[in-house]
């Protein structure tokens, strides 16, 4: 197996080295990546989309289909994980239900250190503020839907680790959970049909100057949906893997 792997790796490496030998050097301002459609996005992106962070502009407006299906992919991943039997099995009822000392879910678990508990609880609001700021100011600073989804998701996972499974599950309101998980694909579908009605193109964004506010509203809806939906999906993936098997 080792020999086969080494031979395979060497063959792949040789092929890829031949491949990169034919590539233009990176960093060259006249390279194809900077002269084709990328140059157009840089030149007219702000005027056409109203988003100053061009990564967000490309992500949501120019390459909206890509992002739509990407959101569908992470939703499908969550569905796949939840479809496995251990995720749906009911966890055994916790003994004693003590709320004073936070404990990890299972019975023989080590209690969380009070120092770690305190610091995570102290830092969580700051992390949440950072995530919301990167969402709110995502058009003029680095940040946006996916970034704040990742940050909020990581924060919820940290809280889930110190508070234990039962408490962490309450972070996502139970009744709205199904809708929140599907928020990304749903919002994309709705915006896509709105764009279709307005422009005649699926997931089209109105380009004329008069529709400026509408276009921005569409982008904001997508950003918020990606952030909330993505964060909920990340937290749910964590909880599904954390469930006792």
């Amino acid at each position: 197996m080792k020999t086969f792997a080494l031979v395979l790796v060497l063959v792949v490496a040789a092929t890829m080295v031949i491949g990169i030998a034919g590539l233009p050097p990176h960093g060259d301002p006249d390279g194809p990546i900077h002269t084709h459609v990328g140059a157009r996005y840089l030149e007219r992106g702000v005027a056409e989309t109203g988003v100053r962070n061009l990564v967000t502009a490309v992500l949501l407006v120019y390459r909206g289909f890509d992002t739509f299906l990407e959101v569908v992919v992470i939703f499908t991943a969550l569905v796949a994980v939840l479809a496995l039997p251990s995720a749906t099995r009911r966890p055994p009822p916790a003994r004693g239900e003590s709320t004073a000392a936070p404990r990890r879910g299972s019975d023989d678990a080590v209690p969380v250190s009070p120092v770690v508990f305190f610091v995570v609880r102290l830092l969580a609001p700051f992390i949440a503020v950072f995530a919301l700021a990167s969402l709110y100011r995502g058009h003029v600073t680095p940040g946006g839907g996916f970034q704040s989804a990742a940050i909020i998701g990581a924060m919820m996972i940290a809280l889930g680790l110190v508070f234990g499974r039962e408490h962490a599950a309450r972070l996502v309101p139970h009744g709205a959970k199904a809708w929140l998980q599907a928020l990304g694909p749903l919002a994309f579908a709705i915006i896509a049909f709105v764009g279709w009605r307005l422009t005649g193109a699926f997931l089209g964004f109105p380009a004329d100057e008069a529709a400026h506010a509408l276009r921005e509203a569409m982008v904001v809806v997508l950003e918020v949906a990606i952030a909330v939906g993505g964060a909920v999906i990340l937290a749910q993936l964590f909880m599904a893997l954390d469930a006792p098997s």
Binding site: N53, V55, T56, S134, P142, G143, G144, F146, Q147, A150, I151, G153, A154, I157, A158, L161, L234, L237, F238, L241
Partner: peptide, 18 residues
Amino acid sequence: PDVAITEAAVGAGVTSVL
């Protein structure tokens, strides 16, 4: 920077925990 933020939160944080 956008990619860096996401990689720091997802690659180093979420993936490791999973």
